[in-house]
Amino acid sequence: MSAAVEVAAVTKRFGTRAALDDVSLSIAPGELFGLVGRNGSGKSTLLKLLAGLLAPSEGRVRLLGHEPFRAREAVMRDARFAFAPPALFETLTARETVRHLARLGGRAVAPREVDEALAAVGLVERADDRVRTYSFGMRQRLALAIALVPRPRLLVLDEPTEGLDPQAVLALRALLLALCRDHGVTIVLASHLLGEVESLVDRLALLQEGRLLFCGAIDELRAGSERLRIVVAPRDGGAGAASAASAAAAALRAAGIAATLRGDTLELPAGSCTLEQARALLQAARLELLEFHVERPPLEALLDRRVAQAKAASHGAANGATR
């Protein structure tokens, strides 16, 4: 099956400044994909390239089999975009906005479809109020409702939870997951709120200063980053907890794992071993794993590390070149 989104060696320059530099990624149909990066990282530029609002300076972008800048109309038949902050027609009501925009492709839209979309984002009660009376959160929800009618094959959302209350965020997550799992909609979620992305997506791409630092599954990103804290007990129940912990530390050190002992608890450095490896080593030392806790660093920390690594690498390369 061909990719829903394919970005191949894309560079986008504004004058001499490259907003995107040689970015390549591919998103499969039905995938929930995250696009993360700080402000100015090139996220918005990439989204506009996907929407056909910008043309790539180099490389190629394809959405649902079409090049968006050349065949924007064909792409938009099955793709929907919601940009942040949402720009809306202030003098129209939510219902009018959704209905008229849905008709723009020449397709008849049943009032039921409009009502369902407004219900899905919790705007039914205010559907006939002018948009200019809406709060920021309501505008966000309306932007999402617009993107839902008619139901797309590809949904690209830019910062969709910004301004939403926690309840609305939960409802949005449930909605996106349902769209993805039940209807096979491909979703691209761009955000700088990494926790939000982490809870939803299977894979993500990290952009930094126009470059793609990482593209892959979150597990892949996490690999080697989890710290293990364990509490052990002797298998035969003879020795006390403290001596069991000392014995376990010794066993682990013997296996080259620099475990730190903190009271009854052993802390294993990130990436030193998996839970299964630790369990096997302890069994061999006639110790039993009584309690464990896998400590996952926040995604922000992982991404910061990636950014730092990239900077260090480019710095090193620059120094090398200078020498």
Partner: peptide
């Protein structure tokens, strides 16, 4: 300027 042109351009309608 208001961004509503983008709202129109991301629908299946020609320029």
């Amino acid at each position: 300027g208001s961004g509503t042109l983008t709202l129109l351009l991301v629908r299946p309608v020609s320029k």
